[in-house]
């Protein structure tokens, strides 16, 4: 079933079309949210909200737009809202909670070499540093970088999702990579990598 058929049937209230939409685009939405919030449970939670929003606002969807672009946009907006709300909540969290959360997030990183505990530990450490470096990027750079790395979108697709020109996306990704490189090098110099 094509995206246009799904949308048409969904506008008529078809539950089967909604199930098809959720099943076919679940990975796309969850992965995008995960790239931004860096927590699997939160990502699934936000992704569920994304599909609820799609179901409720299907009449507002323009026929000429791409369904995936719309989904990416909602997923990005919802994830950014979640991050903003989380920042406010973090004021009330203790430092221990913060460390435990980071450790749990790092444990979620699946590595192929599970037989080598030392390698696994090193990778967990790297994952924490990398995620911190990504999280410290300015919001637009972070979104562009996440869409490029987690969803492997082209510059053109990222430009459509973010409503920017291709050259702006190029510039965002260039600055994001430069920023990451700088942070990782600082860490390498301090021997935390």
């Amino acid at each position: 079933m094509s995206d246009t058929d799904i949308i048409d049937q969904l506008k008529q209230g078809s539950e089967a079309a909604f199930k098809t939409l959720v099943d076919t685009h679940q990975k796309l939405v969850v992965n995008t949210c995960y790239g931004l919030v860096q927590n699997r449970e939160d990502a699934e939670d936000i992704a569920q909200d994304v599909f609820v929003e799609v179901y409720r606002n299907i009449d507002k969807f323009r026929a000429d737009a791409k369904l995936s672009t719309w989904l990416y946009r909602i997923a990005v907006n919802r994830s950014l809202n979640h991050i903003r709300d989380n920042k406010k909540r973090k004021w009330f969290h203790s430092f221990e909670d913060e460390v435990a959360n980071k450790r749990r997030e790092a444990m979620q990183v699946s590595t192929s070499n599970t037989d080598e505990p030392e390698y696994e530990l090193e990778n967990q450490q790297r994952a924490i540093i990398l995620k911190e470096a990504i999280n410290s990027l300015p919001q637009n750079q972070k979104v562009a970088f996440t869409l490029s790395k987690y969803e492997e979108l082209s510059y053109q697709e990222i430009a459509e999702v973010m409503d920017l020109s291709v050259s702006s996306v190029e510039s965002l990704l260039f600055r994001a990579k430069k920023g990451l490189q700088k942070k990782l090098y600082k860490c390498f110099k301090k021997k935390c990598l």
């Binding site: 969850v30 699997r40 990183v109 699946s110 192929s112 990778n123 994952a127 990398l130 987690y150 990782l184």
Partner: peptide, 11 residues
Amino acid sequence: NTLQILDNDKV
């Protein structure tokens, strides 16, 4: 090695 983590870190 650090950047490779992103390749495995997908849902």
